[in-house]
Design a protein around this nucleic acid. Structure first.
Lengths: 341, 341
DNA sequence: TTGAAAGCGATACCAG
DNA sequence: CTGGTATCGCTTTCAA
């Protein structure tokens, strides 16, 4: 019976074959491969030549078993189709390049149970580290998970032996946005909120409120409407806003998607942006540069966040100091806000 | 005394420990776990109870080595941040759920060399199958790769022993779009092309041309401008179009991003859509439902494509017949096209 | 520096 | 039905 290729792979040689042909021991080949110890020039050459004669590639599966590590980083995102998370994943992917780690991406769909389940899957696959992008898991759960695997999280402050998390200053960002509106002469500023149970959404709401207060502008219940971080939420919100009859000159949407929906609702009613109503968003998705008009919004540097997370997890795994520069929010002034004389 | 976890993992028990405690052999435990053979009720119970007393989880790494399979599907995409590809990945992820396969995603960034390199990485990690989303690899290269691992591809027709690929009928889609425009009374239809070396872009261009011809509308060189599938390309294209002085009542953009850019260029010049100029896109990205006005476009059902690819690769790995229902393009009529009397 | 040999943890063949 | 045992391919003591 042929030993032949088991289903699929046109496998290659093994360390032993390489060793045999090169006239050395498997151990030496391994040492050469990993630079674990010095190998004499003579043997080194022999090994090198045999390796590429046989086109030898080490079997990662065997390495994994032996070392107990999969050279894999688990990434828990909330949505595969969100431009927001996509940017962060691209950043992670970018820094992981060339480190020997590959990202294993799963999505929790903003559902704590699902997240927990996916994380277990990741751990079962022996990921060496975990990056958690937002989500509904409790900090306590994450800290507990961190006893089993190093974790870096975005969207929550965390600091433990094997856990680290940071978020951007959403409160500050919201303040900036509202300040900008006020500086441009707006006083009647509506706010379309995000999901009430979402930390970032809460911070943005607080920023809105406090900035109004700071400028002695009275908050109006009618100008504060619910949204859900989606376009349809923004659309509905503006309809409600308009129906209320309450006047306003600007809308601050809790995120860009909401702003898109709001913008469409305005368009439907023939209300011009920014001539009649100004709009500000939050996130700075790629498309926000190309909406009509281009959207003024608070930029979340998600790609850099991703890079930062990637670096962090690799360092944490390597037991090195994290030593991070967390990227910051910034206001992108474009054309969706009008100056009121 | 505990076995003192090796670096990192709070590992668990092994089959052997389970076997010992349950008073059976490791082989039996394995058989029970995999349902490879019948196990007496008595032993089954013993094993079950020990398993959850010890909270035993099989070590995937060991399984991988032994079985030679990583239960992983490599996915080669071209961009992690493109809504287009993201949808497909979500579809793949969706069908893979519960199959025991996890997707390992890498990006080739539309660069043949990079794609080839990433694919090698994937193969080195012993993926059981490969899904290739578009890209610049030659069909021949893919067929060759397919000798080493089963491959399913999107964006090219392929049919080999271990390879299968399909694309959607971009030509047909483009015809539909242009037909629609013509049916609405448009005769001067501009086309913003995609990258000339991109298959889909070529098909869309051909569809545009042939449909014009079919309706005896003379093609004008001035109405045919270059683009690159990006917003900025669309923006530039419209500027050139406008400068040419040639009149036109509609623009067919080779994809939605291009349409976004075109739309902004129009906006900048104070040209209304669809009142002055109608616009049609291709892809139907999520945001296209919320542009102002909502974009009429040819829908690519990428999520379903992803599901289809996922199913295909799993079946191919399992040596089952593929038996696929390839999803189809469809025209989404929204509000960016005006009827000309 | 180098080699022999002992596993990593699970699976599967071969007897019984 | 069940147990013993070899094995997957590599890494890593331990001695030399």
């Amino acid at each position: 019976m042929r030993k032949a290729s088991s289903p699929g792979t046109a496998s290659g040689a093994t360390v032993h074959e390489v060793a045999r042909v090169a006239g050395v021991s498997a151990a030496t080949v391994s040492r050469f491969l990993n630079g674990t110890a010095k190998v004499s020039d003579e043997k080194r050459k022999a090994i090198e030549s045999v390796i590429d004669k046989l086109n030898y590639k080490p079997n990662v599966l065997a390495q994994n078993l032996k070392t107990g590590s999969s050279r894999t980083i688990g990434v828990l995102t909330q949505s595969l189709v969100s431009g927001y998370f996509a940017d962060a994943m691209a950043g992670i992917d970018d820094v992981l390049q060339g480190t020997g780690y590959a990202p294993l991406i799963v999505s929790g769909h903003w559902h704590a149970d699902e997240e927990a389940e996916r994380v277990e899957l990741l751990i079962a696959r022996r990921v060496d580290g975990l990056v958690i992008l937002s989500g509904k898991l409790k900090d306590a759960q994450i800290l507990k998970l961190a006893q089993r695997v190093p974790i870096v999280a975005f969207g929550r402050k965390l600091d433990g032996p094997q856990a680290y998390g940071f978020s951007l200053d959403n409160y500050w960002g919201a303040c900036e946005a509202v300040e900008h509106l006020i500086l441009q002469g707006h006083r009647q500023i509506a706010f379309i909120a995000g999901p009430p149970d979402h930390q970032d959404a809460q911070a943005r709401l607080a920023g809105y409120r406090d900035t109004l207060k700071k400028h002695k502008i009275k908050e109006s219940a009618q100008l504060l409407v619910d949204g859900d971080f989606s376009e349809s939420g923004g659309l509905l919100a503006v309809e409600r806003l308009l129906e209320s009859g309450r006047r306003f000159s600007a809308i601050f949407a809790a995120n860009d998607l909401t702003a898109y929906g709001a913008r469409l609702a305005l368009y439907r009613r023939g209300i011009r942006v920014p001539d009649d109503i100004s709009v500000v968003g939050f996130d700075d998705l790629h498309s926000s540069m190309y909406t009509t008009p281009p959207l003024t919004t608070v930029r979340q540097p998600l790609f850099d966040v991703g890079r930062c997370l990637g670096k962090a997890i690799v360092r944490m795994i390597g037991q090195e100091p994290l030593d991070l520069e967390v990227p910051q929010l910034s206001l992108m002034v474009r054309e969706s806000v009008r100056r009121i004389p």
